[in-house]
Nucleic acid binder design. Structure first.
Lengths: 386, 386
DNA sequence: GCGAGGAATGTTAGCGCTCACGGCGATCGT
DNA sequence: ACGATCGCCGTGAGCGCTAACATTCCTCGC
């Protein structure tokens, strides 16, 4: 009726109210079968009258079904991680699971017991979203100690010992990386450069494999951090080189950084330079120009990870959720390399027509009408090619 | 030595091993004062030998300090939410708190008890990241029942009853919204249009206030969803209107959508159209052209929310963390409106020089060298102005 | 030298829940 | 009509931990 009672209501309160034993109440709230309908109704009535809500801690302590998953990861703000988390959340929510998240510091080294300490109790189910060394180690730590219930997303390429395959849910980004590289090569690019995110080795491996298959020696990998800013810095030198005509980037953010660097260097995309990303982040299709990238169904994989875990937990072999396979989406940052004939004519109009949004690329038929500030370099690199 | 024991080790195991009572062990693991140094050392040794780790559930059940926060929110993939969460995480991790996250469905209606059921137990500390109706309601539900320990981020504008101010941590985006609007007005724009995210009313209020102060009647608000795609759709009509010269967008993603729409409509930015975003997301500075936006310290606010909560929990009045105030960052998508004299000349070269990265805007002095596909509209809207 | 006082440790009683049983009445087979 | 069976429900114990109190031992003041 009025406000909340001082002591929170327990199953005993409910039991007394309903005129049954506490155990019957327990059965009702756990949907156990052996309860008469009439009793069940009485108990349910008492529950709602009293505003009873089960205490998770007590439930966990008493050894009941856990109904919680701990997600271990390093950076929740990366697109891939965030989406995977989202997928796990969606599935967990639907199944009535609570999700705990434990964020690890990528720069720190954890002992196995540090990792275990992140779980609410020993043997608690966990999912690790693994895409760097820290999370890969976490995965192994859990694998070692837990009898079951560890799932990793995207860890197959991490250079650590392969866990039992039925613990692993991952996207085959290696194959698409190769496909994307081949796509660029087939278009006539002499080679493809790779701007690497920190340790997502499978993409790099796919790239290298495609190059090897084409009998091309792989140019040195250009390392970058996870941010647009770091990609921009890392790409400055690369885009300045007119012989570089195609760059495969570890993810979309890096691609945006490269695109920006290319823009500043006065190279037009895709005429002078093709850029391909990874992830198909929401912005990719709406970038100017729209980014050629790879659709990676992180959310689906997150859901898949949760379902796998639940299978392990509850035994039931439920239908596996399927997720989309990675797929190259060609938009407007990629195309055949500019023929050498046209060299010297740098600002080339891009006319590639690709998927979905079909923009009219901007153009500038006239010279700037507004007075350029003194000291401003001519906005078009025009003739001065290096 | 070898693998993990079947039963997990409890304080009793540790106590036996160390030759003390279980309570002494409890005291040690809780850093209680009344323990002799020698005993403490013995217990600690036993703990590490046995690999003991406290069970959180048991601890919570027994009424110990909780050391966990539940974060309630709707969409973890939005930039603002993700960053706020990140800030909470950072602070929580440093304080040794576990964070639980509970994701609400924005389209669903929750009763108070639905919300309470998300907590591990009655009275558990919680933070809600509020920026829509669902989360605002959640905030109220918690406020009603909990004696304390509810913090909301950014809820002051939600049109719901104002909670006690010492529960609220928020960014003053209303004031910056007004400032940004005024900035555009001062530059000579006849008016400023607003592309709204779903219910972040304070930004809209700031915009409206600035317009009112300038004696300008506010044009109708253009509603949009949270995604770039929805912003693009919503802006198509707006950008087609040559009288629209300035658009303030609810966040950066929307701004990107508008920019893309403007590009497709053949309007050049900032000469024809100024676009201002909100959030200063990582990409903003590296967009082509770099986006004028508002720096919003979500991470700082997240940390602040956690610290506030901890104050309430532990009583100690620790130094409040401060976060940056919102600040307008002028980059290159905003500038004075194009003078009417130049009308008819649509593709104008943008030459605004602004903060930080100073790119050379791309230009296209020549006509397309590559054969345009048949059916492709002329890539430059040229003379055909509508 | 003896009781007061305090530091260090032990003992007891739950927290709210679930598990493993055990009891009781109604139904079934023969 | 009888025990065997089954559905339904209750009892007791204990999960791992902490709060509150009880106990022991040591130190100090007069």
């Amino acid at each position: 009726m009025s406000a909340a009672e001082p002591k929170s209501v327990s199953i005993f309160d409910v039991a007394k109210r309903a005129g049954v034993s506490h155990q019957t109440v327990s059965r009702v709230i756990n949907d156990a079968p052996m309860v008469a309908d009439a009793t069940r109704a009485k108990v349910k009535a008492a529950i709602s009258e009293l505003g009873y809500r089960p205490n998770r801690s007590a439930r966990a302590l008493a050894g009941g079904a856990v109904r919680s998953v701990t997600v271990l990861t390093t950076d929740t703000s990366l697109y891939g991680t965030a989406e995977t988390l989202r997928g796990i959340e969606d599935a967990a929510r639907a199944a009535g699971f609570t999700i705990l998240i434990s964020v690890l510091d990528p720069d720190e080294t954890y002992s196995d017991s540090d990792i275990l300490a992140r779980l609410p109790h020993d043997g608690a189910p966990a999912i690790v979203i693994a895409h760097d060394e820290t999370t890969a180690n976490a995965m192994q730590a859990l694998q070692k100690t837990q009898a079951h219930a560890t799932v990793a997303t995207g860890g197959e390429h991490l250079g650590v010992e392969q866990p039992a395959s039925d613990w692993l849910v991952s996207l085959d980004d290696r194959t698409v990386a190769a496909r994307a590289t081949k796509y660029l090569l087939d278009m006539g690019h002499a080679t493809v450069h790779y701007l690497a995110i920190p340790s997502k080795a499978s993409r790099q491996a796919g790239w290298a494999a495609a190059l090897a298959e084409a009998g091309i020696e792989a140019p040195p990998v250009v390392p970058s951090g996870w941010t647009v800013a770091s990609a921009y810095e890392a790409a400055i030198e690369l885009v300045a080189d007119p012989d570089v005509t195609a760059i495969l980037c570890g993810n979309d953010d890096l691609a945006f950084g490269v695109l920006y660097a290319a823009h500043r260097a006065g190279r037009s995309v895709p005429a002078d330079l093709s850029v391909v990303g990874f992830d198909d982040s929401p912005l990719a299709a709406y970038h100017v120009p729209p980014l050629t990238t790879v659709d990676l169904d992180f959310r689906g994989v997150g859901r898949g990870a949760f379902e796998l875990l639940r299978d392990k937990l509850e035994g039931g072999e439920r239908p596996r959720p399927i997720w989309r396979s990675p797929e190259l989406i060609v938009r407007e940052t990629s195309g055949p390399p500019q023929r050498r004939l046209l060299k010297g004519l740098q600002c080339i109009h891009s006319s590639a027509e690709a998927s979905r949004p079909r923009p009219r690329p901007g153009c500038s038929p006239a010279s700037p009408p507004r007075p350029p500030k003194p000291g401003t370099p001519p906005s078009c690199p025009s003739t001065s090619d290096n």
